[in-house]
Structures are given as C-alpha cells and as structure tokens.
C-alpha cells in the first residue's frame, strides 16, 4: 500500500491505516517530495560545480541547516498551537551575548544552561503578553523583538563580544565524521520535538488549541498555561540556536541574527505546517531548513548575483508552499458537512 494509490484510486475501499506505524509512514511519504527536491538540487549543483561536494561546503550547509532548524523546532510547536514568535533574532542575540559575557568566568555547561534559561525567560515574557495581556502573537512578539534587540545593543554598547574560549568553540563547531555537533543536536532535538508534539498530553493540548481553541477550552484543557509553556520551550530552542551561532562566529553581537525569524518561519511552512495551526510536521521542518541552506549555498557556488538570489529564494518559497497546499487538499477527505 502506498500513498499514491490511496489518492489516485478513489474507488479503492477506504484505506485504513491499521496501526500508527503505517500512518506515520504515510505522513512521512506525503512530504517526501521535498526530500527529493533537496536531493536533486544538491546533486545537480554538485555535477555543475564539483567543489560543491567538498567536505567544507557540505559542512557549511549542515551548519546553516542546524541554526535555522534548531530554532524552527521551537517555531513548529508554536505554529501548530496557532501561535507565532517573531522575536527569534532578539532571543538569539540576548542569549548569545550572555554566553559571551559569562564564558570567561564560568564553565561551558553553566554558560549554555544560562543561555537556555534566558531564552525560556524571554519566552515567558512573550507568553504572558499573548496569554494574559491578550496581545495578538504577531504584534506582541514584534514588539519584544525590538525590545530584545534594543537591550542587546545597550548591553554591548553596540560592540562585538568575542568568544575566546577554545573549548566552547570546539564543543559548538566540531564534528563526528562530516556531521557537525549542531546538526547532530538538531537531529536529537527534532526527535524530542516530535515526541513532545505527538506523544505527550502537552503536545495534544498544543494541537487541540491550534485546531479549535474554543473546543479545547470547553474540553477542560489547560490552554492558557500551555500557551505560556510553549513560548518558553520555543525561547529555549531559539537560545540554543544562539549558542551554536556564537560558537561558529566566535562572537556575539546584537544584530548577529537579524531577519532570521522569516527564514525560520519559512522552513516550518515549506515543511508542510499550516499557519492556521492544528497540525505540524517536525520532519518537514528540518527538511525545509535544509532546503533553504542548500539553496543559498548553491546560488553562491553558481555565482548567482545576490539580487537574483532573492528572486530565486522567494520563488522557491512560494512554489513549495503552493505545491504542498495542493497535495494536502487532494489527500484530505472533505471536512465536516
């Protein structure tokens, strides 16, 4: 049984995924086209420019995937719950600067822990604004983005905080084989995110409130509490991305990640998660992050001018989402009614 037969042969009796294993495979396959796109792009560019396959370049792509992907793991939880966070760049800046500032005085583990805690606290602020002050997530987090960025500039006086600890740089940029630590971290984090979303009561509440918040409230689910917590989890993810970026750049500064929120949201959406909430695909999100990393490195390699890179990236984003939407509407049986 394959997904295609289920979609193209309506006469077949209702396809019944008898176990969750099959349904997991089905949802996996229905997003496989993106994997194919990424693989084809990777191979085609490699054939044109053999240096594309060089270990250094592949690692660059994996680093890039990891930074966006780690943040996107937090974002996919938010979007599934019908929420959004635009303050990614602010959270990254504050937590990365914190790491840079405390590293000379403490050990690496504590520094990273501090960064993650700071990320969670900033997420808490977002969550409280959205849940109890009842500001729309888009506006609330746009506001805190500027707040966090402003705080970072004031904290550093606009200067770059250099990360001198070679141990920290090693921990955040070394690799096993050709797989950098940040990328391995992304894999682990993605598995955790998937389990959180689909195996726990908390994840069920997130999907329920993204699907129909009013019904979730009337079912007695703790909607408000979950909103605050998911903003904190997302903030921690963003901070973790900031930790790895600080290691890679050997420095931290206020505008180190400016604009990253759009890349993060794009990765989630291209991966097949609807901005309307209710359902999220973690695997698709990772592939989405990888797509944009491969794309940007390919265009650089091929010598495409940066103006045209915008055009291509934008076109890919639009086409990928359009194709995804078409496939989903074809695969889904009609709604109630």
């Amino acid at each position: 049984m394959t997904t295609t037969s289920a979609i193209t042969e309506p006469e077949a009796t209702r396809t019944a995924p008898t176990s969750s294993v099959t349904s997991t495979i089905l949802s996996f396959l229905s997003h496989q086209y993106l994997v194919v796109v990424v693989a084809v792009a990777f191979i085609v560019v490699g054939l044109i420019k053999p240096s594309f396959f060089g270990a250094g370049n592949v690692q660059n792509i994996l680093f890039e995937t990891a930074f966006v992907g780690i943040a996107a793991c937090g974002m996919v939880l938010l979007i599934t719950a019908g929420l959004l966070d635009l303050s990614v760049a602010g959270v990254i800046a504050v937590s990365a600067i914190a790491v840079g500032m405390v590293l000379p005085y403490t050990n690496i583990g504590l520094a990273i822990l501090l960064a993650v805690v700071i990320g969670a606290i900033l997420g808490l602020l977002n969550g409280l604004l959205v849940t109890y002050v009842k500001i729309a997530p888009f506006i609330a987090t746009l506001g805190t983005l500027y707040l966090f960025l402003g705080a970072s500039f004031i904290w550093t006086g606009g200067n770059v905080v250099t990360v001198t600890s070679s141990n920290f740089r090693a921990l955040t940029t070394d690799s096993i084989g050709f797989l950098p630590y940040p990328f391995l971290t992304l894999i682990v984090l993605a598995l955790l995110t998937y389990s959180l979303l689909y195996r726990t009561s908390f994840g069920r509440t997130l999907r329920a409130m993204g699907s129909n918040q009013r019904a979730a409230e009337l079912a007695g689910m703790r909607v408000n509490q979950s909103k605050v917590v998911v903003f904190m989890v997302a903030g921690a993810c963003f901070a973790l991305a900031g930790v790895f970026m600080a290691g890679r750049l050997s420095s931290a500064e206020a505008n180190m990640a400016t604009g990253i929120e759009m890349g993060v949201i794009a990765a989630v959406v291209v991966g097949g998660t609807s901005l309307r909430g209710g359902r999220g695909t973690v695997f698709g999100t990772v592939i989405g992050a990888m797509l944009f990393a491969v794309l940007s490195k390919s265009l650089n390699m091929l010598g495409v001018s940066s103006y045209w890179q915008y055009i291509v990236t934008g076109a890919v984003l639009v086409i990928a989402v359009a194709v995804g939407a078409r496939r989903r509407s074809a695969a889904e049986v009609r709604g109630a009614g």
């Binding site: 069920r204 999907r207 329920a208 129909n212 009337l218 709604g335």
Partner: peptide, 14 residues
C-alpha cells in the same frame, strides 16, 4: 459541535 466541540485536526481516539 463544529465550533465548540470537535477538534478537527485530531483523530477520533484523541
């Protein structure tokens, strides 16, 4: 049922 009952993205078990 539609706006205050069902959770349309979740399966019947959930």
């Amino acid at each position: 049922r539609k706006s205050e009952g069902i959770l349309p993205h979740l399966d019947v078990t959930e």
